[in-house]
Design a protein around this nucleic acid. Structure first.
Lengths: 335, 335
DNA sequence: GAGTTTTATCGACACGCGTCGACAAGTAGT
DNA sequence: ACTACTTGTCGACGCGTGTCGATAAAACTC
């Protein structure tokens, strides 16, 4: 592999000039720069990663902390990872996946100090999240996908819950649905309640009746939810789901009981990653979760922060778009 | 962050002695080593990553090439990533996710040469895979999850197709199923045919009738498959599925047509990642795909290779285990 | 006990880059 | 014409580690 010195020789300049020509930290005559770039291309030169990190103290590597649950990384994480990884690459950074237990939190700091890592992306943020507190104390730059109860000035990317629910509700309203139920996992006050309270608000605006059905993140729970729904709200015509896996179970339940989707019952899913949509039949109408974009945005925000562009926006909310597929239709005339 | 020099001073030895004490490349008096380790612990010293890479030419970083399909990283990839990442960490390595287009293949080589990457893990291996050819030519160490038609001495981890299908078939046999269908995506000769031909063999051994139903990797295709199955093979009592997503559609179809699972029809899925199981109702009986272990094994094989432990086994086949859940029961008495 | 090998340690250097200070040449202001 | 900047370039140094050669001490050999 070519080194800086070789490029310098070929271009007839000094080694440091090559550096400046490439990084643009000092003014360089345009003609010289061109000569350098030509030499770079000719030799297929690429700055040595380790040397750069050593000399400059910048590793250009981001860590994505993934709380490894029972099944490891959560499904949705895939698209975050994809987005974050692609955006990082576009800016000359790398993304390493860091399956983390809580016990390993201290390790992150050590690695950050050892130059391995420039910043951290966190997912599955809790209302109160000790990881956030820790990283702040340790002065490791970080960005969240999701947000804590009071994010303050911390960097984050999150869903625009209000926008997303309104997209779904307004669409159901336009189809004539007036009595709906919604599936949610929220138990106590926490991250999940952001969605359900936004939904209640949106429904109220449209003068809909919206009843809550509690689920957990399992297909079987979705099926139970259908049974509950079927019994308690026989005259309801639509369901909004805030949990992707339960949705699939819910549809199974409907199939099982002979309730036709979308003729008898419409379903809109609000928090379903792209990859899950292909797994349902009929294909789900969703307000899609722009997970790829969220991951990408998280990377960009984090890199801005690392590079000290403090003027830049470091918080973002993304709503997603309504994508009409096969689980919604006009409300059947109410009984 | 503490440096090697500080550790040396505290331990009362030279800097190089610290190196040798930690890396064990030269003999060190046991007492000295202990003193060094104590100092290391005391200062919470961790060798600077970049410096190590620069001096030693070893970056201790693995790249996992993920062919970014339509939806980015494939679902199953998650567990591979988890496993590979965890195993890498245990051996002091890092795993970066590399969303790759074919066009970027050359980039990998450059990065490998620039010291950024020590080796590559490949997934979604094709029978003929140009990436494999490229990496071999470029002399970048690599390991495959899956394998090419003729892997030769290349490192790989793959499923034990024969073992996995036999587990599934033998179980169905023990339940009295004698006429089965199987869902598969194989069209031409390729990776997918490994599974179906193993299945045909296993069925023959048990004197079962096994009919093939062609699907593609979509839920709707699985539903179509059910309809085909229902019409063509009304007296068949079991289905083996080799495609996870189609399986879910197949079950939807069964629900829709009032065919009760497992009473009327048993289903065994052979290639279903853990994360998909939770999405079906009833819960799927599977021969589980040990994806985490496969990822971990791939890391370990690759690291062995990078560190030149050539004596070690560099190919492995994993069968998985039969996990009985809710989609299998004794065969209904045949008509 | 002289010669030889082994063990344990040290000092020095190289890896390739970022960046600071120096300096020559050019430009602007008076 | 003198000073005061600015622009463009270079040489030198340091980042923290791996590792080679040298050396002193210890352990064998006959």
């Amino acid at each position: 592999m070519a080194t800086r010195a070789e490029v310098a020789k070929l271009a007839g300049v000094s080694a440091s000039t090559v550096s400046y020509a490439l990084n643009g930290d000092r003014s360089i005559k345009e003609e010289t720069r061109k000569r350098v770039l030509k030499a770079v291309a000719q030799l297929n030169y690429r700055p040595n990663f380790a040397a750069g990190a050593l000399a400059g103290g910048k590793s250009k590597t981001l860590a994505l902390l993934s709380p490894s649950g029972e099944f490891g990384i959560a499904l949705i994480a895939l698209e975050y990872i994809n987005g974050a990884s692609a955006a990082a690459r576009d800016r000359g950074y790398h993304l390493v996946i860091w399956p983390s237990q809580e016990s390993e939190l201290a390790e992150i700091q050590t690695f950050a100090e050892s130059g391995m890592i420039s910043g951290v992306i966190l997912m599955e943020i809790q209302f109160k999240d000790e990881r956030v507190d820790y990283l702040k104390k340790a002065k490791v730059p970080f960005a969240m996908i999701g947000r804590t109860e009071k994010p303050g000035k911390d960097s984050y990317v999150d869903r625009d819950f209000i926008g997303a629910t309104e997209l779904g509700i307004d669409y159901l309203d336009s189809l004539g649905h007036k009595k709906i139920a919604f599936l949610t996992t929220d138990r106590a006050v926490g991250v999940d309640t952001r969605f359900s309270s936004a939904l209640v608000e949106a429904a109220k605006k449209k003068k809909m009746i919206a009843k809550k059905i509690q689920v957990v993140n399992e297909a079987s729970s979705g099926r139970d939810a259908f049974i509950e729904f079927h019994k308690k709200y026989p005259d309801f015509t639509a369901v909004v789901s805030l949990n992707d896996i339960a949705t699939l179970g819910f549809i199974s339940g409907a199939n099982e009981y002979g309730v036709k989707i979308p003729k008898d019952l419409s379903i809109v899913a609000l928090d379903t990653p792209q990859n899950h949509i292909e797994m349902s039949w009929p294909p789900l109408t969703t307000v899609n979760l722009p997970a790829f974009e969220m991951g990408a945005k998280a990377s960009n925000i984090l890199i801005d922060q690392i590079e000290q562009r403090e003027n830049k926006q470091n918080q973002a909310l993304l709503a997603g778009e309504l994508v009409i597929r096969g689980t919604t239709a006009k409300a059947r005339k109410s009984i």
